[in-house]
Design a protein around this nucleic acid. Sequence first.
DNA 1: CGGTATTAGTTTCATCTGTAACCAATGTCC
DNA 2: GGACATTGGTTACAGATGAAACTAATACCG
Lengths: 159, 159
Amino acid sequence: MSSAARRKERPAKADAPLLLEDFLPYRLAVLANAVSRAIARRYEDAFGLSIPEWRVMALLGVSPGLTASEVAEATPMDKVAVSRAVRSLIDAGRVKASADAEDGRRQRLSLTPAGAAIYRRIVPLARTLEAQLLADLDAGDRAALDDLIDRLEAAAQTL
Amino acid sequence: MSSAARRKERPAKADAPLLLEDFLPYRLAVLANAVSRAIARRYEDAFGLSIPEWRVMALLGVSPGLTASEVAEATPMDKVAVSRAVRSLIDAGRVKASADAEDGRRQRLSLTPAGAAIYRRIVPLARTLEAQLLADLDAGDRAALDDLIDRLEAAAQTL
DNA sequence: CGGTATTAGTTTCATCTGTAACCAATGTCC
DNA sequence: GGACATTGGTTACAGATGAAACTAATACCG
């Protein structure tokens, strides 16, 4: 019997003990943590890249010319995290910042040729890891998963 | 149209750009992070309790007499994290450690009366937050979610 | 214009987290 | 029973993270 089935047999009455292993917020945290850690190690080993750095590169790979603020808006990272990731990427020669003609505070960010070369190598790795995670799910499962995550995210905003 | 539906219309071919917002590991991290942060704030405000401390109390509430190692085995926390959470709970008078008769290294952990009183107040809050997260999901959705998380966790082990 | 409020981004500092080193008690093997 | 490995748990140190203060440039408004 799967653990989902085991859980299902145990209806959570109000006075039943709260089992951490069945508690959704806990399960989500454990799952996301396991995935993030495994992926972070791969990116670090292969490219010396942290997760925040990878996120910045992933955005710039699709949308060159974003500012740091725009990167921060597009992710759950705050501006401090973005600033640090960008600094580190610039130091590594993977990203360049160019002054914005209209606003002297802003810096337009983009991948350098070296950064773009690395980007083209990370994307297939990312796809492979995602595929490995989804290997046992058919198209219907995947659609259901996407939909559930959307709904949970919306609900999480109300917490 | 839901964002899941939007995603579905955009089949991820090997050469399509990788969109961070559709990338499962990223989505899981963002979701789990949003949930954890919201809940951590509630526990902190209401009980001065961190997530690791809450996890320890949740385990001890169901299984008094666990050792720190057993707590570490039952969660993704390592023994250092458990040690710190336990220390803090003991300092706050919420957990007590008693010497194990058979093995002088081990300490049997359990909630103090004060800890148990807090525990009885947290559990309903935890259930309420979980219910709020699941509010829009019917029984079938919830079973599917449980099952998907199980399968993703299994797949995550292979990364 | 000139003063004040905003915004972009960085720096600072305090806390958290993780890895490794460590100490003490027990188990193992001869 | 004594050396050595193992286990339970803590300590120490380093790097990551987050909130708030700060700097510099722009926008707003009289």
